[in-house]
């Protein structure tokens, strides 16, 4: 019976980010938070494996903030147990640090067969944490997976690459990163949500993982973010009008020809 750890990031909901019009700085502080999209696919896949083969699904999050509500959603979706590593000093840590903390947490959680992650997160989209974590744990990794099955001691995964699909096999324990295509995450029912509040929830500080506070956050990270601004987008926004669709189309056609598209 497999024991599966799913790494989930509490990410900013990118569709609710506002921009300060004078400085072009992003206002992310009041944007709602949620489980990053592809991480949800990873969790869904783990729960489906458990439904088939039994076993246990463990949700793991590292966050500077209190991510309890987010992790409760993971429990409602079917995780059996949640681990939250939280410490304000974690703020602005890069993937090198995040993967280190995750590795420490995984070691403390104990034995496992699979770790599932999303291919990347919606806020940073760097696709680093999964492979970095596998490297730290010294286990095989299969990235960009759209189909997954377990066979004895092995995991079989179909990767979606630019030039081909590749079916790869690895001995467990192994780490898999999944893409959206792999499944449609469930929406938990009310009874599931109620059940979730009774499930085991463990919170660890960095101290408890033996990670020193000086080695995380901006000071410990090897990549430092200097600034984040909204992209410049000066577009003409010329509205093409007309009495009817034909007239509009003609006016647009004129504009395009004038711009040099569709040469005579």
């Amino acid at each position: 019976m497999p024991r599966i750890i799913v790494c989930l990031k509490q990410a900013v909901d990118v569709n609710h980010i506002k921009v300060d019009p004078t400085t072009r700085r992003l206002i992310t502080a009041d944007a709602p938070k949620k489980i990053s999209d592809f991480d949800k696919n990873a969790l869904e896949e783990a729960v489906r494996i458990k439904e088939k083969l039994q076993g246990e699904v463990v949700a793991l999050t590292v966050s500077a903030e209190d991510a309890k509500t987010t992790l409760r959603e993971a429990l409602a979706m079917g995780a059996d147990k949640a681990y939250l590593v939280t410490d304000p000093s974690f703020q602005d840590s890069d993937a090198l640090i995040t993967s280190h903390i995750l590795a420490q947490a995984v070691k403390k959680i104990g034995s496992f067969d699979l770790i599932l992650c999303g291919e990347a997160t919606i806020d940073s989209y760097s696709a680093q944490v999964g492979p970095r974590l596998a490297e730290r744990l010294g286990i095989p990794v299969i990235t960009y997976v759209r189909k997954l099955s377990l066979e004895g001691n092995h995991v079989i995964a179909e990767r979606s690459l630019e030039d081909r699909f590749e079916v790869a096999k690895a001995r467990m324990p192994a780490l898999i990163t999944v893409i959206k295509e792999i499944n449609e995450p469930r929406i938990p029912s009310l009874p599931d949500i109620l059940k979730a509040s009774k499930k085991e929830f463990v919170t660890w500080s960095l101290d408890e993982l033996g990670v020193s506070k000086e080695k995380v956050g901006i000071t410990g990270s090897s990549v430092q973010i200097l600034e984040v601004l909204a992209p410049k987008g000066e577009r003409k926004q010329i509205k093409i009008e007309g009495e009817n669709p034909h007239e509009i189309a003609e006016n647009l056609a004129k504009a395009l020809i004038q711009k040099g598209f569709a040469r005579r």
Partner: peptide
């Protein structure tokens, strides 16, 4: 930054204990 390259870069920089900026 192909998909293979992304995985490679993440693992390489973990071994070298250094930073990586993606894309």
């Amino acid at each position: 930054s192909t998909k293979r390259g992304k995985e490679l870069a993440a693992r390489l920089t973990t071994r070298l204990e250094t930073g990586l900026v993606s894309d």
